[in-house]
């Protein structure tokens, strides 16, 4: 498994890094921590490159390197990287420019074999999309964005599951809220949800919401299947069958201590583009961390 963690600054990205690294540890996954710097006008790219080379001669690092250094220190403090690498400290001069707007520092991990720190520059959506397309990540971990359209674009265009981190995780009180319906997206989401619940020993709420007063065969079947899957991995889930608007119900039930897991919408991409989807509406409005499984 490969996990991409997108960070922006030490002030805002600690929860993102925390949850991304915990997931990487649980799955023994390869992990890449990416910082995407601001876009530069096409008129100035060469001049900026020249200026940055001059800066390097004076020992001045390029923007974003400090954020990577903070990420490195976090990895070292939490023993995610080998003691030899951690003790050597953050080596700015070992950031390798691979071209294609990508600088990389390769580290050896303790729990995860591969830990890479990378620096890219440009618009965040195209850069993350390219990174995922080029390196085939399974999960992209991001923080909550203030930009309204950002969440929509990430879910719509990035070809991996998306985990939206919020605050630092208070693990002891944490619960997993698995949203279940009869769609294809739910099946994969259940696999992820059950693995996470098992790995972190989390209590689970399995929620199915019907818009009609009665639950159809499909919904009931999916709900029962979900309960069985969790029981199989040794977790006793709480069954919740509710009637109402799915998005509103999920938002009413979810607290800050819930990790919401939902499958990606199976709606036509054109409809999703204009109208959004259930996972997207939940993501925009809730304060809980959330995983949208693709």
């Amino acid at each position: 498994m490969k996990i991409l963690i997108a960070i922006s600054s030490k002030e805002y990205s600690k929860p993102t890094l925390q949850v991304g690294m915990l997931a990487a540890k649980a799955y023994n996954a390869s992990v890449t921590i990416a910082y995407v710097g601001q876009k530069i006008s096409a008129f100035g790219t060469s001049d900026v490159g020249l200026a940055q080379e001059s800066n390097a001669k004076w020992g001045i690092e390029r923007p974003g390197v400090r954020v990577l250094e903070w990420a490195f220190n976090y990895l070292a403090e939490n023993k995610y990287i080998t003691p030899e690498i951690a003790n050597a400290g953050f080596q700015r001069n070992t950031l390798v420019d691979h071209g294609k707007n990508r600088l990389e520092l390769h580290l050896k991990g303790n729990y995860c074999e591969e830990v890479d720190l990378i620096l890219r520059r440009g618009d965040i959506i195209p850069e993350l999309r390219n990174e995922v397309a080029q390196n085939g990540y399974d999960i992209t971990v991001i923080g909550r964005s203030k930009k309204r359209r950002m969440a929509h674009d990430l879910v719509q265009y990035i070809d991996s599951s998306i985990y939206v981190a919020r605050d630092l995780l208070p693990f002891k009180e944490f619960r997993l809220l698995q949203a279940v319906d009869d769609s294809k997206g739910t099946t994969k989401a259940l696999l992820y949800g059950s693995q996470v619940a098992k790995a972190f020993n989390m209590p689970v709420d399995v929620l199915t919401v019907s818009k009609r007063e009665s639950f159809g065969k499909g919904y009931m079947g999916a709900h029962k299947k979900a309960l069985k899957i969790f029981e199989k991995v040794g977790v006793k889930p709480v069954s919740m069958l509710k009637v109402g608007d799915p998005v509103k119900t999920i938002l009413d039930i979810a607290t800050k201590n819930h990790l919401i897991v939902m499958g990606v919408s199976q709606l036509n991409p054109i409809i999703q583009f204009f109208k959004g989807s259930k996972p997207l509406h939940v993501m925009k409005k809730c304060d809980s961390p959330m995983m949208i499984v693709k």
């Binding site: 710097g37 601001q38 530069i40 006008s41 008129f43 100035g44 001049d47 900026v48 200026a51 940055q52 800066n55 923007p63 974003g64």
Partner: peptide, 15 residues
Amino acid sequence: TAVAAPACTIIYASG
């Protein structure tokens, strides 16, 4: 704006 001249782009790129 930072796009008007390369000198502005250069200081903007410093972050």
